[in-house]
């Protein structure tokens, strides 16, 4: 694992990736800090983080797009398979290297609230609580990016899907509120989502029975539940989206609440997608 970690880290700093990622993050947070803390003279640094979070949609895919897809394109994945290193160690080594690249600009950002505190009252607890959540959310999104990168040997594809997934996650709550607010509208939306899950499983596993089973099963559950008690669908979709959204949970921290459930959720998302990445790599051995 240490060998993979060191090798990856060196690659990030030899290429532009680490610098582009860091520069983007620092620029957007810098602009946020200018607008909120300096121009508008607001003393809440956490607003800057809330404002900056959308940048993840751009920089996380830039960082993660090549992490596994490039191995497959260069056929170096064969080397990793033949080395006495487990797939789990490979993924963890790569993930930790990504986290280091991520933490370096974040460490610089960590000094901002302290600097601002020299010139006025800054709510340091909320600032650092939000920064912590900001880090966890980034870590979770990077894990998602690693998984997406493991799906294809095309970096561009990995980046595109990565941007789409993160943007969709960012706007999911807003979008779900636009869906017809009746129980029927939400039921239909859930029905379509169930079908999408089925297709996704089919794409990932190429297993007909499993994908049709899950997809049709979920669709059936939606239909049956709708006819049994349509009232339970009212407001259900935005609720589900709020629960699933990574970005919504950051706002809880920004509002000054240290939400343990969000911490657990971020960590679970990271672990879940790293687990999927390991499976995705393992699957290549069993095609």
């Amino acid at each position: 694992m240490a060998a993979v970690f060191k090798h990856e880290l060196r690659m990030y700093f030899q290429s532009l990736t680490a610098y582009v990622f860091g520069a983007f993050l620092l620029v957007i947070v810098g602009i946020g800090a200018m607008l909120y803390n300096l121009q508008a003279a607001v003393s809440n640094f956490e607003y800057v983080l809330s404002f900056s979070s959308i940048i993840y949609a751009v920089i996380v895919p830039i960082l993660t797009m090549r992490v596994i897809s490039e191995e497959r394109r260069q056929k170096t994945d064969q080397l990793l398979y033949s080395l006495p290193v487990s797939t789990y160690q490979v993924i963890m080594g790569k993930y930790l290297a990504l986290l280091v690249v991520f933490v370096i600009p974040l460490a610089i950002i960590c000094t901002y609230p302290l600097i601002f505190a020299q010139f006025g009252d800054v709510y340091l607890a909320t600032s650092y609580g939000s920064l912590f959540a900001f880090f966890l959310m980034g870590a979770a999104l990077i894990a998602v990016g690693v998984f997406i990168s493991s799906l294809s040997e095309n970096q561009g594809f990995a980046a595109g899907i990565g941007v789409a997934v993160i943007v969709l996650n960012y706007f999911s709550v807003t979008l779900s509120e636009y869906v017809s607010a009746t129980a029927l509208g939400f039921a239909l939306a859930l029905f379509v989502l169930a079908a999408a899950v089925g297709f996704l499983i089919h794409y990932l596993t190429r297993n007909d029975n499993l994908s049709y089973g899950v997809g049709l099963g979920l669709m059936a559950v939606v239909v049956i539940a709708y006819f049994m008690d349509s009232s339970m669908f009212e407001g259900l979709l935005p609720e589900i989206m709020t629960t699933l959204s990574l970005f919504e949970r950051l706002d809880v921290f920004v509002n000054g609440v240290f939400d343990m459930t969000a911490v657990v959720y971020y960590l679970s998302v990271a672990v879940f997608f790293l687990f999927l990445s390991v499976q995705s790599l393992e699957k290549r051995r069993y095609n």
Partner: peptide, 17 residues
């Protein structure tokens, strides 16, 4: 795997190294 050294058909090299 420690007993084996393997060179696959396409040499698995990191081009930037």
């Amino acid at each position: 795997k420690r007993q084996i050294g393997y060179l696959p058909e396409h040499p698995p090299l990191y081009m930037n190294d």
